[in-house]
Design a protein around this nucleic acid. Structure first.
Lengths: 225, 225
DNA sequence: TTCTATCAGTAAAACTTTCATTCAACAAAC
DNA sequence: GTTTGTTGAATGAAAGTTTTACTGATAGAA
């Protein structure tokens, strides 16, 4: 995950960079608009963190460039103060999220992750894994070109899994997700087993070719690129 | 990991408690300020979850107490609505994170864990011996920075040993401890040998550099400062 | 009817204990 | 100081136990 940080306040910038790095992200920092535009021209990022008040102008310039070039990066604006106007203007220019100073670094992290997760499914709605094709939007699933009739829960489970690709999801996390936070479901692993089983069957898992991998003692993960 | 939940809405409180418990945390719940203050006076927690709107006042009182007494607990505020002002005031009073209802339990969990992880770097719970790091609370063990997967018995044995550092423990004492006072285990030394062996292996003992020293004819001791 | 949750029985994995064997420590005799 | 016998300790592998996961059938809910 690559993040570009455009922020001229050195101490905050350092803090953010350190924090993101310690959470397994690559984070480059620049402190003015012109350098930012160079970077953006040269590289692709997953997410851009933008402070609006910069020494050589205000950050909307960058937003316009990104929009003109139809870039796909997620954009989070960091600002000291935030008015309804800047917010509206920002959203028109493609800003995905606002964060008002002072904020906690953990919140920034959560928002970046949420944003990137959202973005990943935008643009092209089709996700492919070998013989499986999933349309995120219409929630149609095809296995070897043939439509698979998944139930609501099964689709929900499938999207949860592929949305956390290669991350292991605990059974209670899955239970929470599927049951919509019904706490009395959390320690009921049977229904997780059941849905996993049914989903695997409909995805045509023949054993050798596993999409959903069970992790003993913990839960499941989607293992497929 | 011990969590204190201060929340007066019973159903939410129950949900949270169950969820945290199913994720291996100890969670106590109270529903007003006075009980909370009693608990805080009597016990130490890793993390305090605080709803600001409580029947007998607002939660800032608790924050002030915690701050006055320079307590080390991580604090996450759970609130129905959140203004910039409460947020700033909160941070000044030592709040580490805010969570606005409604939220997903999994998000709460992630934040607690992230918070506690951060806090831990301000020294506690961690015991170090050379290349071994033991977290007494979470019972996680790292060898050369890599997590070692110890079984329940192995952790039990390890804690017994380091808890009696440099004291020699007889094999029957170890047997008694591990078997939970099963009398027929006391003169069975084979299983002590076995567990010692497995533990040594997982701790990466290369022979030269011994943590667990065997004392001929008696038992074992942990020799390391 | 379709979908979801539960149950009971089975399978699989991990963990514990035992066993047989080899290796090391101590003590007595030379 | 060396030899030798005896006992204690370490080890790998196997058997036994417990825990966790999977499955098909079924009953209940939508």
């Amino acid at each position: 995950m690559k993040v570009l940080l455009i922020e001229d306040e050195p101490s905050l910038a350092t803090d953010i960079r350190k924090y993101l790095k310690s959470n397994d992200m690559l984070c480059e920092g620049v402190n003015d608009i012109s350098t930012a535009l160079e970077k953006i021209a040269a590289y692709e990022y997953d997410c851009i963190l933008l402070d609006l008040m910069l020494p050589d102008g205000d950050g909307f310039e960058i937003l316009e460039t990104l929009k003109r070039e139809q870039r796909q990066e997620g954009i989070i604006v960091i600002s000291a103060k935030e008015t309804l106007e800047t917010r509206i203007e920002g959203f028109h220019l493609g800003v995905d999220d606002f964060l008002v100073k002072p904020f906690h670094l953990s919140e920034l992290l959560v928002r970046i992750q949420a944003l990137v997760r959202r973005k990943k499914f935008n643009g092209n709605n089709l996700v492919n894994f070998n013989e499986i094709e999933i349309d995120i939007l219409t929630k149609n699933v095809k296995v070897k070109g043939v439509k698979a009739e998944l139930t609501k829960t099964e689709i929900d489970l499938l999207l949860f899994l592929i949305g956390n690709k290669s991350k292991v999801l605990s059974k209670s996390a899955i239970a929470e997700h599927l049951s919509g936070d019904m706490a009395d479901m959390l320690d009921n692993h049977d229904f997780v087993y059941a849905h996993i089983k049914n989903l695997k069957k409909k995805l045509g898992e023949a054993g050798s070719e596993d999409y959903i991998k069970s992790v003993y003692g913990i839960g499941y993960k989607w293992q497929h690129e």
